[in-house]
Simulated assay, not measured.
Amino acid sequence: MKALLFEYRFVVAVIAAVFLFALLEWQQFKVILYQLMLKAKSMAKDLVLNSGEAQEEWVLEKAYLYLPIRIRILIPKEVMRKIIKYLYHVAKDYLDDGKVNSSV
Rank of each mutant, 00 (worst) to 15 (best):
A13K: 00
R70S: 00
V59S: 12
W58N: 08
L49D: 11
P68G: 14
F10G: 00
A17M: 07
D96F: 15
L5D: 15
V104W: 03
D46R: 00
N50M: 14
E7M: 14
K45R: 03
L67S: 03
A3I: 10
D96H: 15
Y66K: 13
A22V: 09
M1H: 04
K82Q: 09
K30H: 13
F10R: 07
Y64S: 07
A22R: 04
F29G: 05
E78L: 12
V14G: 01
P68V: 14
V31Y: 12
V18I: 00
F29H: 01
Q35N: 01
K41V: 12
W58R: 06
A13C: 02
L4Q: 15
V100I: 03
L38W: 03
F29A: 11
Q28N: 13
R9G: 10
K92V: 09
E78G: 07
I83K: 05
H89N: 09
Y88M: 02
V90T: 01
Y88E: 03
A3S: 12
D96C: 14
Q28P: 11
F19M: 10
S42C: 08
S42H: 14
K30R: 15
I32G: 05
L49I: 11
K39H: 02
Y8H: 05
E57M: 01
Y66T: 13
L20D: 13
M80F: 10
V79G: 06
S51R: 08
V48Y: 08
I83D: 04
Y94S: 05
V31H: 07
W26H: 13
I71D: 02
A3W: 12
I83Q: 04
L23A: 02
A63D: 12
Q35F: 03
R72G: 07
R72M: 09
Y88F: 11
Q55T: 03
A16Y: 12
Y88L: 05
E25W: 06
A54R: 09
L74F: 13
Q28F: 14
L74M: 11
D46A: 04
A16P: 02
H89E: 11
F6W: 08
F6P: 09
L95Y: 02
G52C: 01
M43Y: 13
F29I: 05
I73S: 13
Y8V: 09
A22W: 02
V90L: 00
M1N: 08
R72W: 03
K30P: 08
K2T: 06
E25L: 10
Y88A: 05
I15F: 15
L74D: 01
A13S: 06
F19A: 01
V18T: 04
L65D: 10
